[in-house]
């Protein structure tokens, strides 16, 4: 018998043997869904970690902006200095034409 026939004979003998998978199939859906849920939650955690520097930068920028804005508004000497240094003309120069 030539090698082709030998090979065909071997393949034909092995062909109908279907491996039993029942034991591995048992509880498969449960394991799979648990894995999917775990991956889903870990992907959210991963995203949160990746985005945390952006959030931190945004918070710092907002804090700095608030600090500088309230700094100008809360300084009571600002107007006084302007009057004392430049007189009322300095202030009226800031006013719109109609309010003078």
């Amino acid at each position: 018998m030539n090698p082709d026939q030998t090979l065909d004979a071997l393949l034909a003998t092995a062909r109908p043997i279907a491996p039993g998978t029942e034991r591995t199939e048992f509880g498969f859906e449960t394991r799979l869904l648990a894995r999917l849920r775990e991956e889903r939650s870990s992907s959210w955690a991963w995203l949160a970690v990746r985005l945390s520097p952006i959030f931190a930068a945004a918070v710092l920028a907002a804090a700095a902006w608030c600090h500088s804005y309230t700094g100008i508004e809360a300084d009571p000497t600002y107007a006084l200095d302007a009057v004392q240094s430049g007189g009322t003309s300095a202030l009226t120069a800031w006013l719109p034409e109609a309010d003078r």
Partner: peptide, 18 residues
């Protein structure tokens, strides 16, 4: 004897081909 031996055990054949 794979071809000649008609009584070649299926498990043995599977083992060989695997």
């Amino acid at each position: 004897d794979a071809s000649a031996d008609a009584t070649l055990d299926a498990d043995r054949a599977r083992e060989l081909i695997e």
